[in-house]
Amino acid sequence: MVKKKFIILLILFNSVFGNCYSENEPFSKLENDIAKNLRCLICQGQSIYDSNSEFALSMRVYIKDQINSGYSESQIYKILVKKYGQWIVYDPGYSKKTFLLWVIPILFFLLGGAIIYIRIYKKKKT
């Protein structure tokens, strides 16, 4: 009885967990770093590194293949952005669309500095 239950559970496990890459080689640091910077399309809050979905597991193998065929980290990001859109990378990059994203915080910083400078050095009006 217990054994039967366990078999059912194993089937459940199988439907929950993925059919993984079959290579026995451990993943390199570069592969892990790239996986951390990619967002999973199936579990959309997680990175490829964190996710266990089929897509994420295939993506890891894909990353490995690309590295082995000589592509650099940034080239791999470019290839994937071309296929899946900017959404897939966690780095929004510099473009017209993300101009304000980078500039607004810097403006805040400059403005804050200016206000403090004025408060300290500007003589009171009489």
């Binding site: 399309l41 089929e54 295939s58 296929k83």
Partner: peptide, 13 residues
């Protein structure tokens, strides 16, 4: 077999 070609096609599931 390992799903990489589907990624090459830009598919995700």
């Amino acid at each position: 077999y390992n799903g990489t070609q589907s990624i090459n096609l830009g598919a995700y599931g």
